[in-house]
Each structure stands twice: as structure tokens, then as C-alpha cells.
Design a protein around this nucleic acid. Structure first.
Lengths: 191, 191
DNA sequence: CCTTTTTCGCTACCTTGGGTATCGATACCT
DNA sequence: AGGTATCGATACCCAAGGTAGCGAAAAAGG
């Protein structure tokens, strides 16, 4: 979809190094942690100049968001009923956050967003909203209730990651699934 | 332990300005956000030199942790049964995080801890462990289950704070209480 | 009163890291 | 060929955490 529609713009075309940069970002974050994964180091790991990074992404946060979008891909929403859909979604995001570098990058960019309204907007619009809408559609739940579920699931996984430095183990993920499902079945929820 | 009460050490005694610094920290964080609440600004707001801050706290993170400890105080664990105790604890931490500056400071220091193992250790030992132990005792639950509850409750509250910039509204806090209580009553949990 | 010890405020400084500017070289289109 | 936009490289700006050194002030003890 790069040259998707009309008339490729003039000038030298961009070399297709986005995938290389994404891979370098995750491996650098995994190796050094989020704060030490500087843009200089990521560029070096990707074999690319720092200026090239900043020509494509306006900030480190924007780079990380795009990297996470690439790493996550679409939510798998197969499942017989709402319970199955919800369970598979929770296990999916838990597994993604457990992948090397992904959890650190997610927690790191989320952290930066706390003090950066522009980044918060980006995170909300580009990363959260698409999944939120897909979930609203698949579950037939209203926006505020899906937002609540996202807070619970993602918040729990990131808090564990942030406090221990390691992703949540499977047994705890299953506890989280059960907790959310029980509550989903209850039908009660925020006004 | 450290020659606790008696025998004041020689030299000029410290002026009792800790409370002023804590207040200045919270108000500065509330006004400018966590990242813009630099140590210089906090010192200025407290009417104190930056070097005085660093003479008392080894890092900004340590200052914030002490500030949060001061703001939180002990958990109120009154309540007839385990459900009442848990509910009051959840409402208590939600209310604290909703106080001006506290939620931002908490989310901010948590964010920094993601990339800073030393700060993570400090956060875990000085802030989480005391409350965790008190909860284990009051609820009669094992460590890993209490840790799971803390991940869920604090993670959810901080995720909401981080994504929206504002604390969770009461209706959603009540939903969180209900969700946690249902799961607590179930008796199931992580191995 | 005077010395010792420690804190105080102040200023100057170091380092890291996000982000920008500039420049020659290069790749593609018309 | 000419135009245009990218690439790599270097140099740079700025904010912010943290440190060093200094003279001044506040206590304790002689």
C-alpha cells in the first residue's frame, strides 16, 4: 500500500528499510532496555543514519508506536461466543507483550506518554482505538465498557512487566482471563 | 538501628523542610506534569536549593517515592470480612491516586522505573512491599495472589490515568471493586 | 569566645539524549 | 540533462539529572 493510489511523488524514493528499523528497535530495546535504547543506537543497529529515522518518524515515541503496530498486527477475534472472543484477545495481547522487546517497548512508550500529551494522543488514536473499535464490534459492548476492559487487561500486564521486568507467566494470564470472563458474564459494568 | 533516637549527631542540624518539599513536589507535578516537574523547579517551588534536595534524596525517583509514601500513609484495613477489606483498600488507593498530583507522580515514577532497575527495586521494596505484606496479613492470601491483585488494581488505575490524563471516575472504580470482589470470592487464582 | 562539624544556598559544570540544520552525494522521474 | 527528494555524516542546540566546590550559617562542646 506504499505507492497505493495516484502518482508516485518526485524525487529519490525511500529505501525499504522500515522493517529493518523495526527489528533493530525491538532487539535494541530487548538488549538494553527502553531508556538505553537511544535513537542513535537503534539507527546504528539498523545500519542507518539517525537523520533517516527522524526523516520518517517525528519522534522516538512515534517510531515505537509504529514498531508496536507492526509487531502486533490485527487482533485475532475468532471464537464461538463473546467469552471465547474475549479470552482469545486477552491471551493474544499477553503473548505479544511477552515477545522479546515488545513488552519493554510498550511499557516504555506508555511511560513517556504520561508526561507527553501529544504522544498520549498518538498512542490512543493509532494503537488503542483500532483495537477498541474491533472489540466493540466483536463483543457488542459499548465504548466505555470496552475501554474499561482494556484498562484492566493492558494495565495489569504492563504493571507486572514494569514491577518485575518480566512478562506475566501463563498461570497468572489464565487467572486474568478467568477474572475478566466472570465479570463479562455478570453483565454489570460502569455506567 | 541507626542510633535511633538519642545522641544527635554533631554539626548543623537539617532544617525541617521535608514537608515543604513534598508539598512543592505534588503541586509542581500537578501543575506541569511529571516530566516538566524538574528538580530545579521543585526546589524553586519549595524555596530551597537544588543541592539541598540532592543532599537528602539520591535521585529524583527516590524523592518521588518518599513523597508518595508521605501522601499515601498506611492502608486503612478496617472491615468485617475479606470482601469489605478488599473493597475499602481498592477505594482507598483509587482515591489517593485521584488526589491532585499524586496520580501523575505515581504514573511518572512507575514509568521511569521501567528502564531503571535500581528505581524498580526502590519502588518495590519501599512502596509495594509494605502494603503487600499488610494485605497478605489482613486477607490471609498468599503472596503471589496478593501480587496479582495489586497488578490488577494499580495497573488498571495507572493505565486509565496514563491514557486519559485523568483519574478513574467513581463509577468505573466501583466496577473495578465488583470485578475484584467477584474473583476474590471465587477462590480460584494463580498457582 | 572559639573551634569543629555539618548543612545551607549558590554557581558552575559534566553527561546523556532527543531533536535540528546543513551539505555533498545519490537515485529516480520526466 | 534537470528537478526533486532521499541518504549518510557531522556538527550542533537544549533540557534535565546529577556533581563539585565555595563561603556562610547553625548548632555542640570546650
Amino acid at each position: 500500500m506504499t505507492s497505493a493510489t495516484s502518482a508516485r511523488p518526485p524525487g529519490r524514493p525511500r529505501s525499504g528499510v522500515n522493517a529493518v528499523v523495526f527489528a533493530a528497535t525491538l532487539s535494541t530495546v530487548q538488549e538494553l532496555g527502553y531508556a538505553r535504547a537511544t535513537v542513535d543506537r537503534i539507527a546504528a543497529a539498523a545500519g542507518v543514519a539517525k537523520t533517516t529515522i527522524y526523516r520518517r518518524w517525528p519522534s522516538k515515541g512515534a517510531l515505537i508506536v509504529d514498531c508496536l503496530l507492526d509487531a502486533f498486527g490485527p487482533v485475532p477475534l475468532e471464537g464461538a461466543g463473546r467469552a471465547e472472543i474475549m479470552a482469545s484477545a486477552v491471551r493474544w495481547i499477553a503473548a505479544k507483550i511477552g515477545e522479546p522487546g515488545v513488552g519493554d517497548a510498550f511499557a516504555g512508550v506508555f511511560s513517556d506518554a504520561v508526561s507527553d500529551p501529544a504522544l498520549r494522543e498518538l498512542l490512543s488514536a493509532r494503537l488503542q482505538d483500532p483495537y477498541r473499535l474491533a472489540l466493540q464490534d466483536a463483543l457488542g459492548e459499548p465504548e466505555n465498557r470496552v475501554l474499561f476492559f482494556i484498562d484492566v487487561v493492558v494495565g495489569t500486564l504492563l504493571h507486572r512487566m514494569g514491577m518485575t521486568g518480566e512478562p506475566m507467566v501463563d498461570a497468572d494470564v489464565e487467572a486474568l482471563v478467568e477474572m475478566v470472563l466472570t465479570y463479562l458474564a455478570d453483565g454489570a459494568g460502569p455506567a
